[in-house]
Design a protein around this nucleic acid. Structure first.
Lengths: 232, 232
DNA sequence: TTTGTCTTACATCTTTAGATTGAGATATCC
DNA sequence: GGATATCTCAATCTAAAGATGTAAGACAAA
């Protein structure tokens, strides 16, 4: 089965020449991967990526010359469907979070067994995202803590909870940049009625104008309270 | 080893009585878990949680009466260190994302093997976050796509890049809810000058009023561009 | 039935916001 | 030196937003 599959083209970027050599040997031994480039420079790596269009990049993100995270971002911007796997010596949750946020498809510790690196590459090559279990936990630790403030605000202190259903609808339209006329048209009510609702919203949210109301809504999880939306 | 460990107390919430019974039997068979409660009502479940302080809650999030996600949020608000594992029939990435965002420590599909449920409980009981590999991929799919717009927008299409330094300062103050007078006072310039800047901002961002300008700024990574901030 | 909340609506008035035009002072680039 | 861009300020005008008070109909709960 695997023989019929096209080999995945891999580019290696690691400022540590020794480690770079080691990984290169390791990957070269795998029949399903071709190493199309290996460099100790992030900048050169980005250029090689443009030139050779690899399927996967193994990127050390702890480099002095150029921040590896920045390199990931630049590669993602190319929009060439290159899957970046971050290599790092640290299991720092902030680093993991930022790498994944920038679009990395995997994050592997240098101390991990080489078999795990290959496994990660297999997973990523097949279109999945791969994080070792331990790092997934780390990631969520950070991810959830960054939302905790929002979620933990009790109903009493979240002024949004005082809004009526209709007021929420109006506020929702406000957070989409509508003026009175636009809201009136969308809700099929008169403009003066909208003014009434908006004024009530101001009172309840303790703000002075629509911009502040919108900001309050966005900063206090209004999107979650209502239907869907990206909300990140 | 496992004998010496205190049993984990588990609360089950699932509006489907049959499934609830099945899970209860399954968990009861495990020597390391005690089922301290089982109910088909989310509201009753929340009260049971307050009363019995379980270590883990298995929560069905597809319930008609009360939204399971909302229930998770309420339990998290209790701040009682209860680990919630979401049970769902769907591997919808939006659902997974929202559940994890609200603080769920795991997400299991009802169709998954019972062994996997127990494994997830073991992991979560030991303080980890557990997501089956397939769902982790789903999660990151959603997670990364929600950041893609921000990161991938090239400078040319991001209208924010056309703003001058001063205009960015003004916009920054706009995104804090200031009116003309407030901005003028903070920048030590006249109100009319602020009006000029604001009007130029409107032109460049192609919007009609300050609320739309603020929304454009927030939706296009303006915070990142300036001083960082949580940004999640 | 009464009480209360919500939704709708209008009038009136004051204050901001926004559009437009013009212009002087600096700094930079070529 | 001249073109260009930025930052500053002003006057003027129109449109929109916001504050305040009043009130009627619907509906649910007490």
């Amino acid at each position: 089965m695997r023989e019929f599959k096209r080999k995945s083209r891999v580019l290696l970027i690691d400022d540590n020449a020794d480690h770079l050599r080691g990984v290169k040997e390791l990957v070269t031994l795998e029949s399903s991967y071709d190493v199309v480039g290996a460099t100790t420079s992030a900048n050169i790596g980005i250029n090689l990526a443009k030139k050779y269009r690899p399927d996967i990049i193994l990127m050390d993100i702890n480099m002095p010359e150029k921040d590896g995270l920045q390199a990931i971002q630049e590669i993602e911007k190319l929009d060439m469907d290159i899957k970046v796997i971050a290599l790092s010596g640290y299991d720092d949750s902030d680093l993991i979070f930022r790498a994944m946020k920038l679009g990395a498809k995997g994050y592997i510790l240098k101390t991990m067994a080489s078999a795990q690196l290959i496994y990660a590459m297999d997973e990523v090559a097949s279109g999945k995202v791969y994080l070792p279990t331990a790092l997934t936990s780390r990631f969520f630790e950070y991810f959830q803590s960054s939302f905790k403030e929002d979620a933990n605000k009790s109903a009493e202190e979240n002024l949004l909870s005082y809004l009526t259903a209709r007021e929420e609808e109006v506020l929702d339209l406000l957070t989409q940049g509508n003026n009175y006329k636009g809201i009136a048209g969308k809700l099929f009510i008169s403009e003066t009625t909208v003014k009434t609702h908006v004024n009530n919203i101001f009172q309840k949210l303790q703000v002075n104008d629509r911009t502040q109301a919108v900001l309050y809504a966005l900063n206090n999880g209004f999107a979650n309270r209502r239907h869907h939306r990206a909300a990140v």
